[in-house]
């Protein structure tokens, strides 16, 4: 039998077989693939002769469920609109998706695609970093679960195996004390690509900060984050937080300075390195000098 050009498997199991047997390219919403491999009017997109494995219809990949332990498991091929419409979607992810592209794109695009694309400017992925999301992968050898930050290794690069599919993304649901901070400096108000995507979240309960997550997109080859820094702030009350911040006398304190050291923005057709640097610093300072201290001092509404 000749290699099929378009494969529409009936089940996830069949999809995995096809993926392995044909080195097929997974395709969900096509909003990345069909732009990257753009076809002239009336022609086929140049897909490098790899068969396409359509996964957008697979029930195993398009459901959203709670795991009973406070996590929401979102099928990798669930379209953005369905994620927005789900009542338990964490606010940070919701905010990122609300500002992602436009309705027609949100009716087609998926989290799996945003991860597979592995762009440093991927907005939903940026929120997933800040939420410490975990990604489920299935392959012929079985299933595995990896933290999002370990899955993406460079621009357009992931550790998704050649025989694997992303099946779901799990994020902790909001709970009492959850906060989120989201800013996107885009090329315009809607249907915009990020010049900087900035996501932060965590919980402040009884004056203590836990689960801090900070992620900045489009200022380096991958989304910038730091488990170490997040851990440094874990469990802080206002006094400890202030002390941590004073470990460096730079504007915006220790955390701002350390995050600034991690970014490496470039100039491109959308923005400049200087702008990306300044705005990142402003947002870091807004988060670390204003938002978090206010939350910790219990003054927030």
């Amino acid at each position: 039998m000749s290699t099929p050009a378009w494969i529409r498997p009936a089940t996830l199991k069949e999809a995995l077989t096809m993926r392995r047997d044909y080195n097929a390219r997974p395709l969900a919403g096509a909003t990345d693939i069909y732009v990257r491999h753009r076809a002239a009017t009336g022609t086929l997109p140049p897909l490098e002769d790899r068969p396409v494995l359509y996964v957008g219809h697979l029930p195993e990949l398009t459901s959203i469920s709670e795991d009973g332990k406070g996590w929401l498991r979102i099928g990798a091929a669930t379209v953005y609109t369905d994620i927005l419409e789900h009542p338990d979607t964490p606010l940070l992810l919701r905010r990122a998706i609300e500002e992602l592209a436009a309705p027609a794109l949100r009716n087609a695009g998926t989290l799996g695609g945003n991860i597979g694309n592995a762009s440093p400017a991927a907005d939903a992925v940026c929120a997933l970093y800040a939420l410490h999301a975990e990604v489920d992968l299935a392959g012929h050898a079985g299933e595995r679960r990896v933290p999002i930050a370990q899955l993406i290794t460079g621009p357009g690069k992931t550790t998704v195996g050649a025989d694997e599919l992303i099946t779901a993304v799990s994020v902790p649901m909001d709970r009492p004390g959850s906060f989120h901070y989201y800013r996107k400096a885009g090329t315009r108000r809607a249907n915009a690509l990020s010049k900087i995507a900035f996501c932060a979240g965590g919980t402040v309960l009884e004056g203590r900060l836990t689960g801090l997550g900070v992620a900045v997109g489009a200022v380096g080859p991958t989304i910038v984050h730091s488990r170490d820094l997040e851990v440094r702030a874990e469990g802080s009350d206002l006094a400890r937080y202030r002390k941590l911040q004073q470990e460096e006398s730079a504007p915006g304190g220790f955390l701002t300075a350390r995050y600034m050291a991690l970014i490496s923005p470039i100039s491109d057709q959308r923005s400049t390195d200087a702008y990306r640097r300044r705005v990142t610093e402003n947002l870091l300072r807004d988060l670390f000098e204003r938002t978090i201290p206010t939350l910790l001092s219990g003054k927030a509404g």
Binding site: A102, R188, R189, A190, A192, Q269
Partner: peptide, 23 residues
């Protein structure tokens, strides 16, 4: 729209941004 080296850098509608209804 810039062409520091001669070729325009903004050559898709994603990169050359005209106003949307929300701007």
């Amino acid at each position: 729209m810039e062409n520091p080296e001669g070729r325009f850098l903004q050559r898709t509608m994603a990169d050359y941004c005209i106003p949307t209804s929300l701007d």
